[in-house]
């Protein structure tokens, strides 16, 4: 495996279920975790809907993959940036999102939040700091 360590950003701008992009983006994140790169996820526009708490797909007959976001901490994926303006525009609040946490091995395995709410200007800076931007 390569020695290079790059900054990867996964940009999610689409709601789940209407298209397959959210699910297949998550599959890349899970596989990518094994490569030990710096990984961040960005949730912008309708992408914030991927993190909605209480997703129930039973009646729609689709596979519910929302639990996978909660497992990302176990894959060392700990930075899920959520854009504040995208939430506001959609009438959403942080409380509407599922709790996503990771265990900090440097702090006696304390559970810490992986969701980081940032404003649009901060999101621009996050994009500008990446080596690889994967958009889905």
């Amino acid at each position: 495996m390569s020695e290079t360590k790059k900054k990867f950003l996964y940009v999610n701008r689409k709601a789940p279920y209407g298209t397959i992009y959210a699910l297949e983006s998550l599959e890349v994140v899970l596989i990518g975790a094994a490569f030990e790169q710096h990984v961040s996820l960005a949730f912008i526009d309708d992408g914030v809907y991927q993190l909605m708490d209480g997703q129930d797909t039973a009646a729609a007959g689709m596979k519910n993959f929302s639990k996978t976001y909660k497992a990302l901490g176990d894959y060392e994926v700990r930075k899920l940036y959520v854009e504040r303006e995208s939430l506001d525009e959609r009438g959403l609040k942080v409380e509407n999102l599922m709790p996503v946490t990771y265990e900090d091995e440097d702090d006696d395995y304390a559970e810490k939040p992986s969701l980081i709410v940032v404003d649009r200007a901060e999101m621009s800076k996050i994009i500008a700091a990446q080596d690889v931007v994967l958009s889905f």
Binding site: R13, I44, D45, E85, R120, M123, S124, K125, I127, A128
Partner: peptide, 15 residues
């Protein structure tokens, strides 16, 4: 789509 608006909202100077 909103992609042009979103893009323009997230560009940095010099992009």
């Amino acid at each position: 789509r909103s992609s042009l608006k979103s893009c323009l909202d997230h560009v940095s100077a010099g992009d």
